[in-house]
C-alpha cells in the first residue's frame, strides 16, 4: 500500500486585487513505503507548493493528501521536513538546533540527549555540537538540517532543494551521505530538486511536473539499487538527457517509462 497518496491535488493562490494563480492542477502521485521519489520541474512550477501541502504547512484548494490512508490535516510527527538553506535557528547551537523537535514535544531529557548524540554521530556533526550555525559551512548546516528532521524519527522525510545552495563537490558528498542514511534508517523520501542529474542519481522514481498550472508530465522509474549507483553510469546519463529534453519539449501528459539498467 502507498504510504503517501497525493490524490488530484490542486492549488490556486489568491492574491488580493489580482487573478488567482493556479499553481497545481490535479496532481496525483502515490509513494510506497521506503521509496525515494524525486520531483523535478521548471522553477515556479509548484514543487515547493506541493511539498508544503504534503507537509501540512499549506492547504490545497482541491483534492486530498493521505498518509497511511488518513487525510493530512496540519503538520504531524509522521512527516519530517528538510528546508532549503537548512533554516537553522542562528541563536541555537548545533546541538540545540538538532534537539529542537524533541524539546518542543517535551520528550524526556534523557531521550533527548541520547537521540541528539546519535544523530550528530550519524551526520558527522559531533565535533561541531557547540558551534553556532553562522560558524559552519553550508554543507555542515544542511547535515544539521537533516539530523534535526531525523531526530523525531518520522516515517516520511520531505526535502525541498536541500542541496541547491551547495558547491558541486559538497553536493555530491551530501547526496552520497543521504543514500547511506536512507539505507540505514529506511525512510520514505520525497525530494524536490531542479537538478536533473541529482534526481536520477538519488531516486527510485523521478516525477516531472509541467510548467504552471502543474500536472504530472511524465514518470521515470529507475530500477537498480540506488545504493550501488555510479554517478557516471551511461544509462543514468541517458535518462537525465531524456528528462531534460522532455522539459524543453513541454507538456504532454501522463507518460510512463521504465528503465532497467
Amino acid at each position: 500500500m502507498a504510504i503517501i497518496e497525493i490524490d488530484h491535488v490542486s492549488k490556486a493562490y489568491e492574491v488580493e486585487g489580482e487573478e488567482s494563480t493556479d499553481a497545481l492542477k490535479n496532481v496525483s502521485i502515490d509513494i510506497k513505503e521506503g521509496e525515494f521519489v524525486c520531483i523535478v520541474g521548471p522553477s515556479g512550477c509548484g514543487k515547493s507548493t506541493l511539498l508544503e501541502i504534503v507537509a501540512g504547512l499549506l492547504n490545497q484548494t482541491g483534492g486530498e493528501v493521505r498518509v497511511d490512508g488518513k487525510p493530512v490535516k496540519g503538520t504531524s510527527r509522521e512527516i519530517g521536513v528538510v528546508f532549503q538553506d537548512a533554516a537553522l535557528y542562528p541563536w541555537r547551537t548545533i546541538r540545540r538546533n538538532i534537539g529542537l523537535g524533541l524539546e518542543l514535544s517535551k520528550a524526556p531529557k534523557e531521550k533527548q540527549k541520547e537521540q541528539v548524540e546519535k544523530y550528530m554521530e550519524l551526520t558527522g556533526l559531533s565535533d561541531f555540537a557547540d558551534k553556532y550555525p553562522s560558524q559552519l559551512s553550508g554543507g555542515m548546516k544542511q547535515r544539521a538540517g537533516i539530523a534535526r528532521a531525523l531526530v523525531m524519527d518520522p516515517r516520511v522525510i520531505l526535502m525541498d532543494e536541500p542541496f541547491s545552495a551547495l558547491d558541486y563537490l559538497t553536493r555530491c558528498k551530501l547526496q552520497e551521505e543521504l543514500m547511506a542514511i536512507r539505507e540505514k534508517e529506511k525512510k520514505t523520501i520525497l525530494f524536490v530538486t531542479h537538478d536533473i542529474n541529482e534526481a536520477v542519481y538519488l531516486a527510485d522514481r523521478v516525477i516531472l511536473l509541467s510548467p504552471r498550472p502543474s500536472v504530472v508530465q511524465k514518470e521515470y522509474v529507475i530500477k537498480n539499487n540506488s545504493a550501488t549507483r555510479d554517478r557516471r553510469d551511461s544509462t543514468l546519463m541517458k535518462i537525465a538527457a531524456e528528462i531534460s529534453a522532455d522539459i524543453s519539449r513541454g507538456a504532454s501528459t501522463d507518460e510512463y517509462i521504465e528503465y532497467i539498467i
Binding site: T75, S76, L100
Partner: peptide, 14 residues
Amino acid sequence: TKQAYLKVARVFEA
C-alpha cells in the same frame, strides 16, 4: 521573524 523559522516550528507542532 523569517517565514522559514516559523515553518520549522509548525513542522514540530510547537
